Amino acid sequence: MLIPAATAVLALGLIAGCATPPDKVSASYVSPMQYADYSCAQLNGELQRVQRQLVQVTGAQQKEANKDAVAMGVGLVVFWPALFFLAGDDQKEELARLKGEYEALQAAAIRKDCGFAEALTAG
């Protein structure tokens, strides 16, 4: 009886180490006031830079979440040592920061009434 209980505790502990899917990561708060002195051109350039990083980190996070899901499925159904492969490269904090920066840049662009700001809120 002790071995199945220990296995269950181990499995639950490893589940907590799974990478979060990118769409489940909330944005960290970033104040739009730090962009108050930016021109619309500077805001647009910074938005593009952050968006490129966001796409890259989102892809890496999704890849890690997919890998963890496969390892979890294999570990629970077929081969429990596969659960040890769940401790991967989770970039949740970086993704949350980038999402927050993007939202702050959007807010600053809207506040300055930049021509591209309407397209940001529509997409």
Rank of each mutant, 00 (worst) to 15 (best):
P32R: 01
V30I: 10
A108K: 01
G59F: 01
I110Y: 11
T58H: 09
E103M: 07
I110R: 13
V78H: 06
A11M: 12
D89S: 10
F84D: 00
E46V: 07
I15G: 04
F84K: 05
A36W: 07
A11F: 12
G73P: 02
S39A: 10
A41W: 06
S28Y: 02
E93W: 03
G100D: 08
E101F: 00
A87N: 12
E64H: 02
M72C: 04
Y35H: 08
K92M: 10
S26Q: 14
Q61C: 01
A27P: 06
G73W: 07
A27C: 08
V55I: 13
E93S: 13
G88I: 02
Q91I: 01
Q91S: 10
P22G: 08
A107C: 03
M33L: 08
P21E: 08
A65C: 08
D68H: 10
D37W: 07
G73F: 06
G17D: 10
S31V: 02
S39T: 15
L47Q: 08
A16G: 09
A108R: 02
L98T: 01
L14S: 01
A96Q: 02
V74A: 04
L43Q: 04
K24W: 04
K99P: 04
D68Y: 04
T58D: 11
L12W: 12
K24T: 08
L43K: 05
Y102D: 07
L83A: 11
A36E: 15
Q62P: 02
Q48G: 08
A104C: 11
S39P: 11
G73N: 06
C40V: 12
D68A: 13
R49S: 10
W80L: 11
C40L: 09
V50C: 00
L12Q: 13
P81L: 05
A69T: 12
K112P: 05
A41V: 14
A36G: 03
C114K: 07
V78R: 09
G13I: 09
